[in-house]
Simulated scan of single mutants.
Amino acid sequence: MNHYDLLRGLHILAVIAWMAGLLYLPRLFVYHIQNRDKPEVTAVFANMERRLLRFIMNPAMIAAWLFGAGLIYVNVADRFGMKFFHEPWFVVKMLGIVGITGYHHFLSAKFKKLNRGEDIGTEKFWRMANEIPFVLAIIMVIAVTTEFFTI
């Protein structure tokens, strides 16, 4: 079995799970905000949000980072050496990863504020914020698959 292909497959699966959570949590925030005057409904959304973060998003983020680090290790050790670190497409990918990870932590902080009863923004804001991870994913996937940003 090719370890690189296994790592790549596991990385892709972890990213899919992570992206699903990043795209769904803001939608749950919209429903939570819409029903803020109904404590029995918001309790259900709070439980859904907590479970999504704890059991899907956080483990998927950690797995994506670990499998991605494994891919980098294999690339450095067995394939390309250090040269691909200097490729613009790789830099774009790493910046995107930092952006998506920051967005994940932003959502986590907003979840905590929402569950303390604090205002986290409007429905409109969360509908727009919902597009952020997808835009970052588009940029990263195009950069990596086409190596478009190459010297």
Results as ranks from 00 to 15, higher is better:
M1I: 00
H3F: 04
Y4K: 01
D5V: 03
L6Q: 13
L7I: 08
R8I: 03
G9C: 06
G9R: 04
L10K: 11
L13M: 15
L13V: 14
A14N: 04
A14R: 07
I16R: 05
A17S: 11
A17Y: 06
A20Q: 01
G21V: 04
L23Y: 00
Y24M: 05
Y24Q: 03
L25Q: 04
L25K: 01
P26H: 04
P26C: 12
L28S: 05
L28P: 08
Y31G: 08
H32G: 10
H32S: 13
I33A: 08
I33K: 13
N35Q: 07
R36A: 09
R36M: 10
D37R: 05
P39C: 11
E40Y: 12
E40G: 08
A43W: 05
A46N: 09
M48E: 14
E49D: 09
E49H: 05
R50H: 12
L53F: 10
N58A: 07
N58G: 02
P59W: 07
M61G: 04
M61T: 01
I62R: 06
A63H: 02
W65E: 09
L66F: 05
L66H: 05
G70H: 03
L71R: 05
L71W: 06
L71Y: 00
V74M: 02
N75R: 13
N75H: 10
N75P: 04
V76Q: 09
V76W: 08
V76H: 12
A77V: 04
A77D: 01
A77W: 05
R79Y: 02
F80R: 13
G81T: 14
G81C: 12
G81E: 14
K83A: 15
F84R: 02
F84V: 04
H86Y: 15
V92R: 11
K93S: 09
K93E: 10
M94P: 06
M94E: 08
M94G: 01
L95W: 13
L95A: 11
L95D: 11
L95I: 15
I97A: 09
V98A: 15
I100R: 02
T101F: 12
G102M: 13
Y103M: 11
H104W: 11
H104T: 14
H104G: 10
H104F: 14
L107R: 02
L107S: 06
S108T: 12
S108D: 07
A109R: 11
A109K: 11
K110P: 00
F111H: 08
K112H: 12
K112C: 05
K113I: 00
L114G: 06
L114I: 07
N115M: 03
R116V: 09
R116E: 12
G117A: 00
E118S: 10
G121F: 14
G121C: 15
G121I: 13
T122E: 02
T122F: 03
T122Y: 00
E123P: 05
K124C: 11
F125Y: 15
R127W: 03
N130L: 00
N130P: 01
E131H: 10
I132S: 07
V135W: 04
L136A: 14
L136M: 14
I138V: 10
I138M: 09
I139L: 15
I139S: 13
I139T: 14
I139Q: 10
M140I: 15
I142N: 02
A143Y: 12
T145P: 01
E147R: 15
F148R: 08
F149I: 07
T150Q: 15
